[in-house]
Amino acid sequence: MADAQCLCGALELTARDQSKLVAACHCFACQRRTGAPFGVGAFYAIDTVEISGAATEFVRIGDSGRKVRSYFCPTCGSTVYWKADALPSMIGVAVGALAAPDFPAPTLSVFEQSKHHWVHLDGEVEHFHEGAMRKYSAEERM
């Protein structure tokens, strides 16, 4: 089970199952969304997640060419989760919102064409210059 929440605690998400995928994304949208050189998301089957609290939705076209809906707290502005049309049966959760230093490391690193040159991920990580959603569709990962 995983519990994520925004900074003020008004928006919470609970996942009743293990994550199916943990990915580091270096696209410019994730860099701007997080204010960091990359974002890290844990992906869960959408039917295993419960959300409580109000969220504001922001819709954008991702580097994949498909819509990505980010949900953030209207009070503190923290992004807690997102839904990508490329993975319709999954929900992405910001690993930072889980506040769990022992959370598993990413197994994928995507959109590395915009990765900062000084970022290096240790361990067994698959690297993709662009996205990997075709390879990692929701059906293949479940």
Rank of each mutant, 00 (worst) to 15 (best):
V80S: 06
P88Q: 06
S64Y: 02
L11A: 04
C25M: 07
F103D: 07
K20Y: 05
E12Q: 15
R141K: 14
T34F: 12
T107E: 09
M133S: 03
A138Q: 10
V40G: 01
V22S: 08
Q113K: 14
L108K: 09
S19P: 14
A2D: 06
K20S: 10
L21R: 08
S109R: 00
Q5Y: 05
R134D: 13
G123F: 00
R141Y: 02
S78F: 04
T14H: 15
D122C: 04
E140C: 02
M90W: 10
D17W: 06
T79P: 13
Y136Q: 01
G65K: 04
K20P: 06
C6F: 11
G131Y: 01
F28S: 15
F111D: 03
V49N: 03
H116D: 13
S70C: 10
H117Y: 11
F28M: 13
Q113G: 00
A94H: 11
F28T: 11
R60P: 03
H127K: 09
Y81D: 02
E130R: 06
G131A: 01
A23F: 03
I51R: 04
C8S: 10
A99D: 14
I51N: 04
C73T: 03
G39Y: 06
G92E: 15
F128E: 05
S137D: 15
L121R: 07
D122V: 02
E140V: 01
A15T: 11
V95W: 04
E130F: 11
D17E: 12
R16T: 07
H26P: 05
A23C: 00
A105I: 00
E139R: 00
A42M: 10
F38M: 08
T48Q: 14
V40Y: 02
G131R: 00
V110C: 07
D3E: 09
E12C: 15
A23L: 06
A42T: 11
V95H: 12
G92L: 09
G77S: 03
A42F: 07
L121D: 10
A84D: 14
L13M: 13
T79W: 07
C73E: 05
R66T: 12
A132K: 06
A97N: 11
E130L: 07
C30M: 05
A100D: 15
H127I: 07
G65S: 01
P106K: 02
G77T: 05
K135H: 11
L11P: 00
R66L: 13
P104E: 15
T34W: 09
V22M: 13
A105S: 04
R32P: 09
V80G: 03
A15N: 14
T14D: 06
L108T: 06
F103Q: 04
K83W: 04
A99W: 09
A36P: 09
A99M: 08
I91D: 08
G77Q: 02
V59S: 14
Y136S: 00
C30G: 05
H129R: 15
H120S: 09
D47P: 13
Q113N: 14
G131N: 08
F38L: 07
M133A: 03
A54I: 03
E57M: 14
E57F: 00
A24Q: 03
I46G: 10
E126S: 12
F38A: 00
P101L: 12
L98P: 07
E140Y: 00
